[in-house]
C-alpha cells in the first residue's frame, strides 16, 4: 500500500494533462482537467513554502547550539517573522491614500536593493574572470573569445561608431551559428527530459518516494 498509492497517484496525475491535450473538447477536459489546473495552483503554493520549515529548523538549531554565527540566525528569524507578518496581516501595493503597505515598502526598500546589489557584484567578478581566465589556449578558446568580442562590441552604441556593419555582424552571429548551437542544445535537452518524463509516468523513476 505504502508503495502502490503514490505510484498510482503519480501515474494518474501525469496522464491527465496528456489526455486533455489529445482530447481538448471532451468531457474529461471540462469536468476534470481544468479543475486539476486550478487545484495545482493551490498545491504548488503549499509546495513553495515547504523549504521554510527547514530554514526555521536549521536556524533555531544553530541558535540553541550557539553555533558560529548564531547571531545572524537571530537576524534571519526576526526579519523573516516581521516580513511574514506584514504579508499575512496587511495588504500589498498602495493604500487608498497613496502610501505603501508595509509588505510592499519592505519589498521596495529592503528586499529589492539587497537582491539587486547581490547580483550586481557579479559585474565585478565577470570582469576579473575575463582578465584572468579568458585565454586563447586553443581553437575552441579562440572561437569563444571571438564570439564574445563580436557581441561585446556589436551590441554597444560604440560598435556602430566603429563601423556601421558591426551591429549587423553581431546579429548574423546570433541568427545563424548561435541559433544552430542553441537549437542543438534545446533538442538534445528536450529529448533527455522527455524520456525522463516517460520513465516517471510509467513508474520506473520515482522522485516523489525519496531515498527510502
Amino acid at each position: 500500500m505504502k508503495r502502490q498509492i503514490p505510484i498510482m497517484l503519480a501515474i494518474i496525475a501525469s496522464v491527465c494533462p496528456v489526455i486533455a491535450f489529445f482530447f481538448p473538447d471532451r468531457w474529461i477536459n471540462e469536468w476534470f482537467n481544468q479543475r486539476l489546473d486550478a487545484w495545482m495552483v493551490i498545491i504548488a503554493s503549499f509546495a513553495l513554502l515547504l523549504g521554510i520549515v527547514s530554514m526555521i529548523q536549521v536556524n533555531i538549531h544553530k541558535i540553541r547550539r550557539r553555533a558560529r554565527g548564531w547571531g545572524f540566525s537571530i537576524i534571519i528569524l526576526v526579519t523573516f517573522t516581521l516580513m511574514a507578518a506584514f504579508g499575512l496581516f496587511g495588504g500589498q501595493g498602495e493604500r487608498a491614500d497613496g502610501s505603501l503597505y508595509p509588505f510592499t515598502w519592505m519589498f521596495q526598500f529592503v528586499f529589492s536593493p539587497l537582491q539587486a546589489t547581490m547580483f550586481s557584484l557579479l559585474a565585478f567578478y565577470v570582469a576579473s574572470a575575463s582578465y584572468r581566465a579568458f585565454r586563447v589556449r586553443n581553437v575552441e578558446a579562440t572561437l569563444l573569445l571571438i564570439g564574445a568580442l563580436i557581441i561585446m562590441v556589436g551590441r554597444i552604441p560604440l560598435g556602430t561608431l566603429i563601423h556601421p556593419l558591426v551591429p549587423d555582424i553581431a546579429e548574423w552571429v546570433m541568427k545563424f551559428p548561435n541559433t544552430a548551437a542553441q537549437r542543438g542544445i534545446i533538442i538534445g535537452a528536450a529529448l533527455g527530459a522527455a524520456s525522463m518524463s516517460v520513465r516517471v509516468m510509467v513508474g520506473i523513476e520515482r522522485p516523489y518516494m525519496g531515498k527510502s
Binding site: 565577470v126 582578465y131 579568458f134 562590441v153 554597444i156 552604441p157 560604440l158
Partner: peptide, 15 residues
Amino acid sequence: SIVHLVIIFFILFGN
C-alpha cells in the same frame, strides 16, 4: 559602452 571597453581591454591585455 565604457565598461565593455574596459573589459575588452582587460581580456586583450590578459592574453
